[in-house]
Design a binder for these strands. Structure first.
Lengths: 175, 175
DNA sequence: TATTGTTATACTCTATAACTATA
DNA sequence: TATAGTTATAGAGTATAACAATA
């Protein structure tokens, strides 16, 4: 962005007032919350990408690298990576292409299934993701702009939301 | 997405455990919350866009139309729209191009400043945004997946976050 | 037949730089 | 000189469809 000037009033609070004025009371709070989540995501993503850029990573590629670094043998089938990251298979293909060109991952044959390809993190990939993670931890993740109780509430609320949305099946957030 | 299969375990909770195991305790909760916000935004955006698609709108274009529908005279200078929507000027140019081609907005000269152009919503634009809003209110905004107290907490927390991030200057969230 | 992954293609939003017109 | 907006260009993620190889 060229000049992210601070507005004198919260545009989302203003929109909520307009919703109220129109009589859309039942949807006003939801509209405000949803829009706030959108904007918060945008702010956080910008911070993350500015940290990752010097490491030659985008957030999508960082997430893939981090996932692989935690996997057994540092490798996963493409479709497992796609499922775990909740992204489209073609997005994984694209990410792996870039990461492979940068020498951070490599493709390997699956021992049991000839259709399947494994993505495997390289030693260089481990170094890069380790350094990037430490810097992210020291900046965004370690100082996200929410207090400890707020983080707790967020993780609880959003965890429940994601479960209800069908992201995963889990019993730690009982219905 | 082709097959958004529900995972058996929450991938974000799993990542948090890995963070803990590595000793990145101070950043674990923040990482989980930030990642949860990212994923929640993705889910909500997908719902919104699926509602808007039959109306010929994306979320970015809907937001612009909604902003104009609340503006005096239904018109705003391009740079005001850019500031209020927190998007790059070229993004506004692009959105206005598409909306203008669809007959939902028009460009007009600014009476006092020859450099400035106004974006003005058309009657057709008002009809479209009204119908789209009602449908969004009846689905996503009116039923966002959070309880009323949760919405309240979210609006409070994210409002404060956005203010601290420099999005706007306001006194309703005192430091 | 079904599944895995790739390719080709297309459409978002985003961003920088160069440019025109106006102040 | 500074500002408003556009254009050109590029990059990102996302998505569908067609395809090859394998099960």
């Amino acid at each position: 962005m060229s000049d992210p000037i601070a507005l004198s009033r919260d545009p989302i609070a203003e929109a909520r007032r307009h919703w109220q004025d129109r009589g859309w009371t039942a949807a006003a709070e939801g509209m405000a919350a949803v829009t706030s989540i959108m904007r918060t995501q945008q702010i956080l993503l910008a911070r993350i990408e500015s940290v990752l850029k010097p490491h030659g990573l985008t957030f999508a590629r960082f997430e893939l690298l981090a996932l692989l670094s935690f996997a057994r043998e540092g490798a996963l089938p493409m479709n497992k990576a796609s499922a775990r990251l909740q992204v489209h298979p073609t997005s994984v293909t694209n990410s792996v292409d870039r990461l492979e060109r940068a020498g951070l991952v490599r493709r390997a044959a699956h021992p049991g299934d000839g259709r399947t390809k494994l993505v495997e993190i390289t030693g260089q990939g481990r170094n890069v993701v380790e350094r990037a993670t430490l810097e992210l931890n020291g900046t965004v993740f370690g100082n996200p702009g929410f207090s400890a109780p707020e983080l707790d509430r967020l993780n609880q609320m959003l965890g429940k939301f994601r479960r209800d949305a069908g992201d995963f099946v889990d019993t730690r957030f009982p219905i």
